[in-house]
Design a protein around this nucleic acid. Structure first.
Length: 200
DNA sequence: CGAATGATCGGCT
DNA sequence: GCCGATCATTCGA
């Protein structure tokens, strides 16, 4: 697990880059699957028009974003896809990092089965919706505290350092409605990594 | 209570 | 590349 204090960091744009190279792990029905995070996006709470918590909008769904950092925020997109975020910052500050792609690490066969795929390609886990399917992440996980043991989902540091020179930033996707905030370079990926979505 | 709307994906052209 | 799927959430009447 990552040290609990990490999640309280207030600079979510920095944290989105820090999470690159960390491991996203799930443990369901006695089966552990994991992936190395290779692509993320930062959503900067109340002032970010692309965030669900823009202008401190509190609803049943976004409630967990206002809790202390370290919670999982999972929601349904387009009625189909379960999108996984890490809530960050102090209580009351609704920052979040969306995990957009991982490199499959442990129990690839299980992930293939969950995705109903035969051969291993980046399509298995490149994309926020498909990575959740591969790791078995569902909206029911929303609110899980990843700072505590015995969660079904958590983050791990396996000692990999991702330097600034290895990180490529670009504009976030699917947020055209966010006006001037739509072009902010808050999407981060590991450079020359085949497990991310296609480079912009 | 009804209607619009996505932080997307995959299949088809 | 484009287009339709599909449904919880949200908002307005």
């Amino acid at each position: 697990m990552l040290p609990a204090s990490i999640f309280s960091e207030e600079d979510v744009v920095l944290l989105a880059q820090y999470f690159l190279g960390k491991l996203l792990v799930t443990y369901l029905d006695g089966v552990l699957t994991s992936g190395r995070i290779v692509e993320t996006e930062a959503y900067r709470g109340p002032e970010d028009q692309a965030s669900h918590a823009y202008a401190n909008k509190k609803t049943q769904r976004t409630r967990v974003m206002f809790e202390e950092g370290g919670k999982a925020y999972v929601y349904l997109c387009y009625g189909i896809h379960h999108l996984f975020n890490v809530v960050t910052g102090k209580a009351g500050v609704p920052h979040a990092v969306l995990v957009r792609a991982v490199e499959p690490v442990e129990n690839v066969e299980v992930m293939l089965k969950r995705r109903r795929m035969e051969i291993l390609t980046p399509r298995l886990t490149a994309g926020p919706g498909v990575l959740s399917q591969a790791l078995g992440i569902q909206v029911a996980f929303s609110g899980v505290d990843m700072r505590k043991m015995h969660s079904h989902v958590w983050l791990e540091d396996r000692g990999e350092e991702v330097g600034v020179a290895d990180i490529l930033s670009s504009a976030r996707v699917g947020v055209e409605y966010a006006k001037e905030h739509a072009s902010l370079p808050w999407r981060f990926r590991i450079k020359d990594c085949r497990w991310t979505s296609p480079a912009p």
